[in-house]
Design a protein around this nucleic acid. Sequence first.
DNA 1: CTCATATGAATGAACG
DNA 2: CGTTCATTCATATGAG
Lengths: 216, 216
Amino acid sequence: MEEGAAEEGDVCAKVMTDEQMEVLRKQIAAYATICEQLVEMHRAIAAQQDWLSGMRLGSLCSDPLMAPGVAELSSSRQRWTPTPTQLQILETIFYEGNGTPSKQKIKEITSELTQHGQISETNVYNWFQNRRARSKRKKQPAAGPNAAESEAEVESLNEKKAKAETFAHGDLSPTLDEGRFQSPDISSELRFGDPESNGSQGMFALGDISKYGDAF
Amino acid sequence: MEEGAAEEGDVCAKVMTDEQMEVLRKQIAAYATICEQLVEMHRAIAAQQDWLSGMRLGSLCSDPLMAPGVAELSSSRQRWTPTPTQLQILETIFYEGNGTPSKQKIKEITSELTQHGQISETNVYNWFQNRRARSKRKKQPAAGPNAAESEAEVESLNEKKAKAETFAHGDLSPTLDEGRFQSPDISSELRFGDPESNGSQGMFALGDISKYGDAF
DNA sequence: CTCATATGAATGAACG
DNA sequence: CGTTCATTCATATGAG
């Protein structure tokens, strides 16, 4: 924080008309959207960001097209970790059999847990997904063939994709040509913390810019 | 975008403290900078576009010197995984707005992608379905006309030296307490590209965002 | 430092 | 189409 001078009660204030406010809102929204999409696109194009992962390990970072300043914005991928309290609550809820983490429920739980630490709906959602999945897997190898080899071969499983799916669709944009390769696709080794952001919803609910580092 | 935050009440003017103003300015500047850099980087990369040929492999393959040329060998994997090339193409198509995967299109895309690795129409179909569904959900949780906390604490937002003009590459996120998070999202259904989105370049000296407009 | 395990997150596929 | 399941990826953490 810079100057502690600017307090809530300070009289140093500006006044904006609704019109100005609206313009501002739009500008911000526009930028936010652009950034979001660019980041999303980048993420996708960079695939599982494994392409050239040797960059950070081998440090052969000789990529000439890295714009200065943003080169190292990557590595800002910290994964959420539930606090003991949150975990306790989550476990309790899970145990209560509310095996239906519907969106509504997720929201409730999230706001509940927010009081005990940073967390997002996605986190909660993932947690339940994983919890269930792994809870289930633990019980798999204990049902049935106890004397035989439980080693099931799942090799040629990829033949089941011959699913008769009804592609209900009408033709609308038949124009699909080579223009795709000159489309606005952003790629770089830049990597933001993902389209998800949170924590700082200023008065305009912007994404968490801080995620982009102090570079700005 | 969070409606409530910006449009609560309905008076003719809003008041912002200097601090809020400053935060806002920084946020905008940051977004503008990010967008510019991303676009620039994209241009650079798109120009030489020759990276990637096929990497992306499981943890088992410890021999990344694969140059299969046209056939990206991915060991017998049960579930299809798009190769970087395929992904890029898919993303490009997706972003081109033809958000309606018609059967005709699916076929075209499939045959196009077949040249870059094994793939089926079902794969393509599923991919688009998932892509859309997930892209959508990510923007959902923020569209509520309900009021928001007007007292939005913008304080500890980002006490970084927001420098919109210089890319001082410092460390990334020193303000990392115990567990970073990452989730909710920027959210804003506002569509840009239309004339009124970039109307006033006044008070914050924003760059001309219109140049990004039609790109999406 | 390397390997092993736990777990958050990503995503293809399936279900209703 | 929206939601859910199942599998996989990647990283944080601890042991050897």
